[in-house]
Design a protein around this nucleic acid. Structure first.
Lengths: 188, 188
DNA sequence: CTGTAATTTCAGTAATTACTGAAACTACAG
DNA sequence: CTGTAGTTTCAGTAATTACTGAAATTACAG
């Protein structure tokens, strides 16, 4: 007995559909994923077809995409051929996967493009200036990447700790200065 | 004399065009912005029309969009009506604006949708489970929001400090435990 | 004011992306 | 093996999004 689409659950699914379409993910794939996340039991393709009112083949393609993002797990029931899908039980696992996948698809290629352009000798003043900007971008993106990779390693418990620290970020920086012997600039 | 589109600069513009189209931003708007970022001098709409080979009206629309994201600054030259546009000189300013704008457009509406759904009484077991997932999402997203808001406050100098800290995130958590009296769990 | 150089708007069209149904394929129970 | 319940693929079509040129509007120099 798959999940019932009450108005509350519907609203949530529709909202994530809209949001999905603002990212690279298309509307129905967003809806499919919301459905899986909100469902306690794993769902089969036909469940989704029915729940979302889209064609079976569309579901198949969406599932393929979600698999390529490693956002869903495939399961079988003994003695049945049918395939069932589910989302990770921990929302932080989902977020980590999203962060990692976006990094692979967007950040890494950008870093490598920038790197390639930066090894060329600037041929004129315009290129010199442009390379300067590219260098700054490369540096910033690389640092952000390092962070996200570090964050990947955290489990839910430590994530909570880190995030609750957020509101006192300034203190963290000061702490770091004191502990690791940095200079004593203010963080303001 | 506006920026010359050498192959190097072209490549960079094209790359950011492609990347832009994976986000909500469309290809030409991405290209326009890369062009502005790489150009030392502010550019007028006709410069962009010519450089990117797109119609004047398309440039006008793209500029409108970039303005709505607060990613470009409008400038005038004395005695000329023509408008010139430029990107912030500091890439971190750009990143901060992007983060803030995406928060406003994607995170905030999602938080408010989730909040609204969470105040309803669950009508059955499915809704109860679904609300639990929504609660987890809400909590996670809210914490991320707090972080990004905190990060908005940093200037480039402190950003550097924070990011270089990234690779020793674990240490930061331990530090926090010691300093603020948390429990002594490992961060592994 | 007036003329004009500039920007914006918008209806129409082009290009892209999403979706469907039918056919092809696959895995496996019997 | 064979039949069939299931999945995937794909060519065609629908829907959406992006782009253009022409017309309308705006800002301001003179």
């Amino acid at each position: 007995m798959p999940i019932t689409l009450t108005p509350m659950i519907q609203s949530c699914i529709l909202h994530f559909g809209e949001m999905g379409s603002r990212w690279g993910i298309n509307r129905t794939v967003g809806q499919m994923y919301a459905l899986l996340v909100l469902s306690k039991e794993p769902l089969c393709a036909d469940d989704m077809t029915e729940a979302l009112g889209i064609s079976r083949s569309n579901v198949s393609m969406g599932l393929k995409e979600l698999m390529s993002w490693e956002l869903v797990k495939l399961q079988h029931r003994p003695g049945e051929r049918k395939e069932f899908y589910s989302a990770p039980g921990d929302v932080w696992d989902i977020a980590k996967t999203l962060i990692e996948q976006r990094r692979k698809r967007e950040i890494d290629p950008t870093l490598s493009t920038l790197r390639n352009l930066l090894i060329e000798k600037p041929a004129n003043a315009d290129e010199e200036y442009a390379q300067q900007r590219m260098r700054e971008m490369h540096e910033l993106i690389e640092m952000i990447t390092l962070w996200t990779q570090e964050i990947q390693r955290l489990d839910s418990a430590n994530l909570g700790k880190l995030l609750k620290l957020g509101s006192s970020l300034g203190k963290v920086l000061d702490m770091k200065d004191r502990l690791l012997g940095g200079k004593k600039e203010s963080t303001k």
